[in-house]
Amino acid sequence: MYGKKVKLRILFLLSTLILFSLIIFLFLKSLDKNVVYFISPTDIKSLPELSKKKIRVGGMVKKNSLVVDSEKINFVITDFKNEIQVTFSGTVPNLFSEEKGVVAEGYLKDRNFLIAKKILAKHDENYMPPEVKEALEGNK
């Protein structure tokens, strides 16, 4: 149907594409843990050793765990399996609240305690007007 040259060009382009995909795949695979933006409290529990480096822990702010006083705020990040206590002094983003996603960046004191230097709010993919939210909660 097509000439030999056309077939060869298709073959050339497709194999180049496959080669590059493979390179990128292996590259990302070797980066593995470094591609993820944050780790969960469960990941911290299973860490072989605690590093002195800055890490990011993500999860939900546990309900009724948020304590705010004049100097710092304390809360618990949970992934519903494991938890970690976080302390932070500074301003928090608008979307930071209980039962919402959060990423805390800071240093581990031990496996259960993180001294955060920065708090980022992670919001979910749900968008709706306030009235709809109220109606949904009314149904619960």
């Binding site: 591609v35 983003p93 608008n94 930071f96 980022l120 709010a121």
Partner: peptide, 12 residues
């Protein structure tokens, strides 16, 4: 900036 609390994040 107002929602997450950062201008930029090196996430995937």
């Amino acid at each position: 900036k107002p929602t997450w609390g950062t201008w930029w994040a090196w996430d995937a």
